[in-house]
Design a protein around this nucleic acid. Structure first.
Length: 748
DNA sequence: TCAAGCATTGCTTGCTAAGT
DNA sequence: ACTTAGCAAGCAATGCTTGA
């Protein structure tokens, strides 16, 4: 890598070299640059075209040029050589001072040059566009493929240029300091100075009386990105982000082959007894060695490695077998750890485990969030204990009243039934439960859940054609089919539905089937993609099949699901439409309590729910067994009116009855319920007269009024004068019906 | 490979029915 | 006159897929 040290340059050679240099560092030059001659003082000459100034050297004058271009001065005078006057940057210039009083300068320069070439060859530093011998040291030039203009719009680009420029200088400086040539200097202060000047090659260094000359010219051009690749991760102030950068650095730059082989030798010598691991160890070692060596070299390396076992060595034929197989295998650190069954600490010690000691940031964040909420809950509970009313609690804690109520319910501490102290609640176990990380691998086939999702895009079309009767008819049909046999339902669905050309009908059927399946809690459906009607669905969570294999998230068609189900796998399927406002008829959401808006119209009553059917069964059984004739009559009437019982009462009754252990217990509970509560429904039940609400469902008028209110509130909020305590107009159209013994009449 | 984006899911909260 | 609670829309955290 030595270069021939020139003792003399002809005049033509001097000018040619000067031209070459200028054209390289400032290509397409049409702007101002600086040309300086240094005798006793610096003469700055701003020039547009430098060529006329290039000439054979003066023996007593040093020549410099700026590495970047300058703006023309507005008033025609020469601008100062200052950063603010720089028009464009395209070159990075790193000056290495090689002077050493103890040794000959040529010797030092040559040594440095050889080192640089070695680093370039090994990919440690980028190949310089040009390297100059300045007579006193070396000058490296990296030229970009395009120039950067330091305008307001380009701030980021300029910052990046500075960062990379400094980074390169730091990199080279660090390398030099590592090397034996400790005398070398690299002045970081002037690095990334935009208005910097450098010695012009083809001229004489008057101090050392040696020639400044180009000694290496690769003609390479770089993008900032390419240079960036040679630098370590950008230093980051944000600690969190810094960790990520470091982690990515580690992860993305897997260990080189030689380092990994070295690690494996260290691991080998760290232990005496490798019983049971000799073969896999040799196998891994050879695979890695083969990644960077020839077959012959790797074989030799493996034999040496095998000889390194202190307990016993693999037999000759075993080694030869590995060599004969001759495969490249680049095992990762974690894999080596796993295969050799190493302890985490050991793996860390040998540099195999990059995750060692790292904090699970997700879990950390999760804990923080859980703690925040628990703190709030604790505060609210404390306030409930100390306050007179929920309004006070809300005011004290600045938590919405409704949320306070919810918290009260969750922790079983409300106004009527207060806890004595917040410590009566086991906060620790609640916290533990909340922050427990769900790990998908510990799911079993039994409790895996697979959720699908339906999305309809042409639903309007379907709606316009189909009326309620049509839907209802199919509902009933599907319902009966499903009840009879799931196998039959599958066949029917596949043959009659999927192969049917009537896409609208099919869409409805799919919807209806999904809803019916869901209502009957029988498990469940589904999704399908039909040409023309775009029903798209995806598996939403990872589940396990009956053999315990993971089913990854993936798109399946309906038939696959059916096949899967017919093998005895269970599904829980959720259905959600993209835009519930377009298809209110089938509007679903993923909340626990699922409803579709117009179920009253579609199903006519609540009889479609599993709860209803259970309650109905229980009640009819109660009527049969009730010993008291009056209550029996009441129960009978309740049974008769069950579809019209209000939601709240319905669920209350349901919950009460469902807690019963046997029929007698159930009757007692009903009686208790009846006697304890002043309930218009139960009064009615007992007396055979009374009042009831007209409908358990919201009427259309109600919904419209509610929607109006909502919009009004939204508007108020957007106008900026609304707050959470806005008074809504009460809805006043609820009316009561009166039962006069013959029928129901409406009140005014 | 990784960030963006989407789906899921738990939680929040306005409105209002219904209970005390 | 107050509390409790259901519903459902929305929000936010989280976790998985996708596509550049």
């Amino acid at each position: 890598m030595d270069y021939t040290y020139l003792t003399e340059l002809s005049a033509e050679e001097q000018i040619q070299m000067q031209k070459n240099f200028v054209n390289t560092i400032i290509p397409n030059e049409k702007r101002l640059m600086f040309y300086c001659e240094l005798k006793n003082r610096m003469n700055q000459v701003g020039v547009v075209n430098i060529e006329p100034f290039l000439r054979p050297h003066y023996t007593d004058v040093d020549h410099y040029v700026s590495i970047n271009r300058f703006h023309y001065s507005e008033n025609g005078t020469m601008p100062k050589r200052e950063a603010k006057n720089v028009a464009a940057m395209q070159t990075m210039y790193i000056d290495l001072d090689c002077s050493n009083h103890n040794r000959r300068i040529e010797h030092e320069i040559n040594n440095t040059y050889c080192l640089l070439q070695e680093w370039i060859h090994n990919g440690l530093i980028p190949e310089a566009t040009m390297i100059n011998d300045t007579g006193k040291g070396l000058a490296l030039f990296y030229v970009l493929d395009s120039s950067i203009h330091p305008t307001d719009k380009n701030v980021k680009m300029v910052n990046l240029y500075d960062f990379i420029y400094r980074g390169l200088a730091k990199l080279i400086k660090a390398k030099l300091e590592e090397s034996d040539l400790r005398v070398l200097g690299l002045d970081m202060k002037v690095v990334a100075e935009h208005s910097r000047i450098c010695r012009l090659p083809g001229t004489l260094n008057t101090k050392s009386k040696t020639w400044c000359q180009i000694i290496y010219d690769s003609n390479k051009r770089y993008s900032l990105k390419e240079l960036r690749a040679y630098l370590p991760a950008r230093e980051c102030v944000n600690k969190e982000k810094k960790k990520i950068y470091e982690f990515n650095e580690l992860r993305n730059h897997s260990k080189s082959d030689s380092i990994r082989l070295q690690q494996m030798r260290e691991i080998q010598s760290s232990r005496y007894d490798w019983n049971g691991y000799h073969q896999i160890f040799c196998f891994m070692y050879y695979g890695r060695a083969r990644s960077c060596m020839s077959h012959k070299e790797a074989a030799e390396a493996l034999r040496w490695f095998n000889a390194g076992f202190r307990d016993r060595q693999l037999e000759h034929y075993q080694i030869e077998e590995i060599i004969r197989n001759d495969r490249v295998r680049r095992y990762s650190g974690s894999r080596i750890k796993q295969e050799l069954n190493l302890e985490a600490e050991d793996a860390h010690r040998f540099g195999l485990d990059i995750n060692y000691g790292w904090v699970d940031r997700d879990a950390e964040r999760k804990q923080i969030n859980v703690d925040k909420k628990l703190e709030r809950d604790k505060m609210v509970i404390q306030a409930i204990i100390e306050s007179e009313s929920m309004n006070d609690v809300a005011a004290r804690t600045n938590v919405p009243k409704r949320t306070c109520e919810d918290i009260a319910r969750r922790y079983g501490c409300n106004m009527r039934n207060k806890l004595k102290s917040v410590d009566d609640i086991d906060w620790d176990s609640i916290r533990e439960e909340k922050i427990r990380v769900k790990h998908r691998n510990i799911k079993t086939a039994e409790n895996s859940t697979i959720v699908t999702n339906i999305e309809l895009t042409e639903r309007m079309k379907a709606r316009s054609i189909v009326n309620e009767t049509y839907v209802k008819e199919y509902f009933e049909f599907i319902e009966s089919e499903l009840k009879q046999s799931s196998t039959r339902a599958i066949e029917w669905f596949q043959n009659d539905v999927l192969d049917n050309d009537d896409t609208v009908k099919r869409t409805l059927l799919i919807n209806a089937l999904a809803i019916v399946a869901d209502l009957y809690d029988s498990s469940k459906f589904l999704k399908y993609q039909i040409d023309g009607i775009d029903i798209v669905a995806t598996w939403a969570t990872t589940g396990f099949d009956s053999n315990g294999f993971i089913i990854n998230k993936k798109k399946y068609d309906l038939k696959t699901i059916f096949n899967y189900k017919s093998k005895g796998n269970e599904f829980i399927v959720d259905i959600q439409y993209k835009d519930r406002n377009i298809v209110p008829d089938f509007s679903y959401r993923t909340n626990e309590n699922r409803y579709f808006d117009k179920r009253y119209e579609i199903a006519a009553n609540r009889m479609e729910t599993i709860r209803y059917r259970q309650l109905e069964e229980v009640l009819s059984r109660a009527v049969d067994t009730c010993p008291n004739s009056a209550v029996k009559a009441g129960l009978d009437h309740l049974l008769f009116r069950l579809p019209y019982v209000t939601n709240k009462r319905f669920y209350g009754l349901y919950n009460t009855i469902m807690e019963a252990e046997d029929w007698d217990d159930m009757v007692n509970r009903i009686l208790e319920n009846v006697s304890k509560k002043k309930n218009p429904e139960i009064d009615d039940l007992i007396k055979f007269t009374g009042h009831r609400k007209t409908s358990p469902f919201k009427t259309r008028a109600q919904r419209v009024a509610q929607q109006k209110n909502r919009e009004r509130l939204k508007q108020i909020r957007e106008n900026g004068d609304g707050n959470k305590t806005v008074q809504y107009e009460p809805i006043k159209h609820m009316k009561f019906d009166i039962y006069d013994g013959n029928g129901w009449t409406k009140t005014a």
